[in-house]
Structures are given as C-alpha cells and as structure tokens.
C-alpha cells in the first residue's frame, strides 16, 4: 500500500499574545489510500489543528507534510488553494453551506473551479445528490432542510469533484443520534464502495466505530493507534 498522507516530525505553534504555544509536538503519521481514519481525543488536544495541516488549510511550524505526492508545507498560499480544490473534499461540523444557494447550487460550487461544461457540472451534481439520497431536495435552500439533510448536501459537495481525500471535522457534532448514524453510514459506504480515503476528527466513540482505524491525540501527541478489520 502507498501512503497517501505522510507527516514527519510535525509541530505547530500558535502565538497567543506574546506567548508562543506549541499545540502539536513532533507528530509522525502515515495514512494509506482507502483508509477511513478516526482521529479522537479530548477537546483542545489539537485534532482540528492536525486535520487542517493535512487538508492544506494551514502550514506547520516545522516538519514535513506530504499529501498526494505534494510537499504541501512548501506550497505558497495561492498554489495551496488550487491544491485544495484538486485534492480535498471538506465536511464541517456546521455544514458551512452557502445560505443563499439552493442545495444543487451548493453542491456545484467546487465544480466552478474546474473547466467542466455546464451540462457536465449539472450531471455530476445530480449524481452526487442521488448518492446522498437528496435528489428530491435539489431546489431547497439550506434553511429549508434539516441538520442531517444539510450535512448530506455538504457531503455531496465534498465528493462532487472526486477529491483525493475527504476531511471531516466533527461531522456528527451538531446532529442527533439517528441523523449521526445516517451520516456515518453514508461516510462508511463512500469509503467501502468508492474507496474514498477519509480522515475524520471526532470525540464521539460511536462515530469512530465506523472507521477502519482509530488514532488518539492527547495534548498534541499521537497515542494508541488501532486498526479494525474491514
């Protein structure tokens, strides 16, 4: 198996006031294509920080971040946003849909960064919405959808451009148990049937059970790496 994500001795510090606070201390990590990784840990342990580094949203203070063959710690801000458009599908805790756009227009947003024709974009949007089971809600605005439905639209948006890696930060954090299970089933299906590599941050052990691998982060250090049979 080839490593899709490799982190070598990655540290990340924030400057708070005059103080420099290191929140990740020399993290080494390797994620293979096709894995569904759950990154667990208490609040404030640095999960989001780590995820942002993998997703090219932020740069490490030191260390190497290699994703999909690119040393993204060395990319400029401008090329990093192009890189994200090509490689990363995002799923956020609060869905982050654009409130003025319909479900289908929201799903289409990442495709506006490609050179696909309008009809091709429409076809892919339709497919993605069908995949998440929301084809009948295509014309609805986010505020006309439930939380679970909004998150499914967000998942459709994350997969519509067929990215290399899906990153999810607490994707069920804002949902009730039943909706959370639906979302986790959907993510698991994407991983299993479409071989999507997924990195998911969660502090919910129930959600983590759907993953193929569990990693724990504690005060900026990785502990307790566990793999589950698929």
């Amino acid at each position: 198996m080839t490593a899709l994500v490799t982190l070598r001795n990655v540290t990340k510090s924030y400057v708070r006031g005059k103080q420099k606070v290191e929140v990740l201390h020399g993290v080494d990590l390797s994620i293979e294509t096709g894995e569904f990784l759950a990154l667990m840990g208490p609040s404030g342990s640095g999960k989001t920080t780590l995820l942002n580094l993998v997703a090219g949203l932020d740069q490490p203070t030191s260390g190497e971040v290699l994703v999909a063959g690119d040393r993204i710690d060395q990319l400029s801000r401008g090329s990093l946003s192009d890189w994200r458009a090509r490689h990363i599908g995002f799923i956020f805790q609060f869905y982050n849909l654009l409130p003025v756009l319909t479900a289908e227009a929201n799903v289409e947003v990442p495709l506006l960064l490609t050179s696909l024709s309008k009809s091709e974009r429409r076809r892919r949007v339709q497919l993605a919405l069908e995949l998440v089971g929301l084809a009948d809600r295509a014309r609805h605005k986010p505020n006309e959808l439930s939380g679970g439905q909004q998150q499914r639209v967000a998942i459709a948006r994350a997969i519509v451009s067929d990215p290399t890696l899906l990153v999810c930060d607490e994707p069920t954090g804002d949902l009730d148990r039943q909706n959370a299970e639906e979302i986790m089933n959907l993510l698991q299906a994407l991983n299993r049937s479409q071989n999507k590599t997924i990195v998911m941050v969660t502090h919910d052990p129930k959600a983590a059970e759907y993953a193929s691998r569990e990693l724990h982060l504690d005060k900026g250090r990785l502990t307790n790496d566990a793999r589950r049979a698929a």
């Binding site: 401008g78 946003s81 192009d82 890189w83 990363i88 654009l98 947003v109 960064l113 948006r157």
Partner: peptide
Amino acid sequence: LQEIATLRALGFGS
C-alpha cells in the same frame, strides 16, 4: 466571513 472562509477552503482564490 464564514462564507468567505468556506469558499477559500474549497479552493477559491483570494
């Protein structure tokens, strides 16, 4: 700000 950040995350340029 939230919308702008989301779009930037999805790969829209500055």
